[in-house]
Design a protein around this nucleic acid. Structure first.
Lengths: 337, 337
DNA sequence: TTGAAAGCGCTAACAG
DNA sequence: CTGTTAGCGCTTTCAA
């Protein structure tokens, strides 16, 4: 059970450690015969090279880091699958870190990455992130970082996003076209670029439809289920009745359904609802929920591909470039069609 | 931007590398004064020790590996949160790997872990896993491994599970008590211990209620959405009408709802439905779904705690022990109450 | 309390 | 094609 090392293999085979190393990594400068001998022993003894020693020697780890706010979330879970699919293909491992929307955690994680434990990073910023020093700190050490979905505007790098503005615009238009006069916009209080884009799309649609754009119809939650729920309920009960809702976050669709049920508001009769969401269950809700579905898997794949490509070159340069993969509006019965 | 090393710090401070190293790890054998000097420079230069070099030197990495079949799954996503919460607390990082239910992938991942890149492993086996050689291979190298939820019976180690047998038993009893005469059991074709336990619970309940236990009522799917769906639909259409369903996997609740809708079967009027599920949306489905909710977060926490505890000791011995954290039957309107 | 020296286990020139 | 010789950057005796 005692650690098996290359040195031991070398001695056993009467070869140098260097030769064994090269044979194992299938270097061209080793004869087939020796490779065979080496591999046979490797097989027999079930030898696996020490990961830390190789990484140290090679000065890279064949590992990428992924930073996301949350994993109990269809979007991010699906994005991980996308990332994984191409990482695996390229022989990379994936370290996943969760910030739980905390800026402090985000900073700590990036700091840890400065230790060189990952070759590159894929990141979706937390809701609290308003400064980019920690990100620059990492990139200054020569570690490439790509944003996906939730980007931080102040940093120049490749960003894989979806068309948040247009999606919100289209969704709002849809509501207006189908009779909504008073449309709520729900989001988590923040300066997250994607939220702003969605909000702006909503606003533009309202303006085009000659509807009032007012802060009263823009609800910012703070991720506290109870108070968030009360805030929403209060709004829905108010005198001038809301007849449309656009939720900019998947999770916010739950309190909507709950509040409507409790207040005996029918969907879509009293209120039409659309939510940004990747929930598999959207079509089985009561009523089935009209969603803006993001191409989560594709976004993950694309982000990972571009990172891999950069890592493949010795001197990579990440373009300041936005790659937009569009979302789709999936009409279901929570709105009129 | 060129890599900053301890050696450089040492030279700058006119100290030895050894002293700097000890100062950074806050060793007691270093004077406060030197620690202060060192830390000041570390701060100023934004120095972060190389992760691979430290791990190599220390012969441990402060990293644990988590192997799960899938992350787009409420149970596993929540379990990750549980694991993360305690790993973070103890200063460990978490490497997450997905098998996508493939035994080959599972084996490859465990092999990779033999490289010593993780200090310990938390694992839920794939649906295909029928042999444990790869697991023994890892444990033989002295790397502790703990199972959670989906365990492999042939291996002696700590296992964190829930009461699958009793849960299925209770659920089936509930259906029977509320008038079901023909109850279907749905699962993915496998030898997974949790599935067997659930199936056995179901069978026991049927026997106690003098109902027929027949393979005709036990449907094994193969994870192909289309054919799975057709199989289910065919069964529901059959002459002798099914009036109760117990789904042993969250994902299987979707085709049930879909098939019932298409066949104009009302839930719970025609068919009562219960599913093992941790879906947040269960209560907003049409009708709200009665679920057996597993304590995912707790299971993750417990598994991680025990692993951390083992890693804390130099000579750890993982008890062959099953720790059972019970699930809860949450009654909603897809069944009668 | 500090430092010299010997690794950790593997990789990478560079000879031969 | 194989081996020698230096490292990679940090940790850890052990002596001073």
């Amino acid at each position: 059970m005692n650690k098996l090392t290359m040195k031991m293999l070398a001695k056993e085979l009467r070869l140098s450690v260097a030769t064994v190393s090269k044979a194992i990594t299938d270097s061209h400068e080793i004869s087939n015969k020796t490779k065979l001998r080496v591999n046979e022993l490797v097989q027999k003894l079930n030898y696996v090279p020490n990961h830390y020693a190789s990484s140290l020697g090679r000065r890279n780890s064949k590992t990428i880091g992924v930073i996301i706010p949350e994993v109990v979330d269809s979007f991010f879970a699906q994005a991980i699958n996308g990332i994984e699919s191409i990482a695996q293909e390229k022989g990379y491992s994936v370290l996943i870190y969760l910030t739980h929307e905390s800026f402090e955690k985000e900073r700590t994680i990036l700091k840890d990455f400065e230790s060189g434990r990952v070759d590159g990073v894929l990141m979706s910023v937390s809701r609290e992130t308003t400064k980019g020093d920690h990100i620059n700190g990492l990139m200054d050490k020569g570690i490439p970082l790509i944003f996906f979905d939730r980007v931080f505007d102040g940093i120049e790098t490749t960003k894989i996003i979806t068309n948040d503005f247009e999606s919100a615009y289209m969704a709002t238009k849809h509501l207006a076209k189908h009779g909504c006069k008073k449309i709520l916009f729900l989001s988590f209080s923040n300066i997250l670029s994607i939220s702003c884009n969605r909000l702006n799309g909503y606003k533009k649609a309202l303006l085009e439809c000659n509807m009032e754009v007012t802060d009263k119809n823009i609800l910012n939650f703070n991720n506290d289920p109870k108070s968030d729920y009360l805030l929403l309920k209060k709004k829905l009960k108010s005198a001038k009745r809301v007849d449309g809702i656009l939720a900019s976050v998947e999770k916010l669709s739950f309190p909507i359904y709950q509040a409507c049920e409790e207040l005996k508001l029918t969907i879509p009769g009293d209120v039409q609802v659309i939510s940004f969401s990747n929930l598999d269950t959207a079509s089985f809700l009561n009523p089935p929920l009209t969603t803006i579905a993001q191409p989560a898997f594709e976004i993950g794949r694309t982000a990972a591909s571009i990172l891999m490509k950069a890592l493949g070159r010795k001197a990579f340069e990440l373009q300041k470039e936005d790659i937009v993969i569009p979302s789709t509006l999936v009409l279901r019965r929570s709105t009129y069609i």
